[in-house]
Amino acid sequence: MSVFDGLLALVVSALAWRCVTAPDLYRSIVLFIVTGLMLALAWVRLDAPDLALAEAGIGAGLLGILLLSTWRVLIHAGPEQADRPGASTRVRWLAGAGSGLLGVLVAVALYQVQTAIDADRAGTLALEGLGAAGVDQPVTAVLLNFRSYDTLLEMGVLLMALIGALLLRSPLIHRPGDDDAGTDSPLIPVLVTVFVPLVILMGTFLVWAGAYMPGGAFQGGAVMAGAGVMLVLGGRLHSAAQLGLLMRTLLILGVTVFTAAGLLLMPAEGAFMAYPQALVTPLMVLIEFSLAISIALTLLLLFTGTTGLRRADP
């Protein structure tokens, strides 16, 4: 373990502690985002770039945006809503113990990864079966093929979460436009026109890259959702009360394609979600892209808190 790893473990635990004990909500949210970024750095040090991308994109990025927009709604409802009493001594001790433990765990993990990895694990089996998986990246092979049931159910959970959030949305609607500084700034069109295509390109690449290097549907979908957030904040996309047919279709695209691929090949293969060797690679790519599109739209709708989106009037 290098000096850098030791510092990283210290910083992660200090940030986690401050995140709980910070005197106001806004500071806690910012500290939470920074903690997420530092954890992503720790995953990089642990040679787990897939997790680092997911942590940075979803854990720090999109969750941070969701927390910040919730904070804004609270501030608008009345500044006292966003106040909170300072952490009590007991909470401080508990948070200290928890974040200290986190720091120790990070340090132990960073120390362990330098030594040999045990051969007799599930990971070895996955690596041995990689030839049949249709993709060269072990993480994607596990997610989309070896444990595809779990991933399919995760997509269902994500859809359920969105439906639940939309049912509860009325007190949490963020209405862009009424007081957003910046939509009238001359730099916003520059930001939107330069960055959004690049971000979408990067998201698409991450999904595609999932087949042979770190990346995948969740990471790419989160990046694409980030482009959508930029479009909403930049005033190019507005909330709409109705969920159009296209949006509904895209929302369930992932679950539908995943299930259909499993069911339609059942007569030929004899088992749910068993794929013929000749078709497995194109199927993986197809499933991966449909998952990414659904994930991106779900995360974006979680951010806007509305059932639909429409283009801004020119």
């Binding site: 500084a181 910046g182 700034s185 730099l187 916003i188 520059v190 930001l191 330069v194 960055f195």
Partner: peptide
Amino acid sequence: VTAASIACHL
């Protein structure tokens, strides 16, 4: 650099 400048402006 572009993102930082625009964020600073905002």
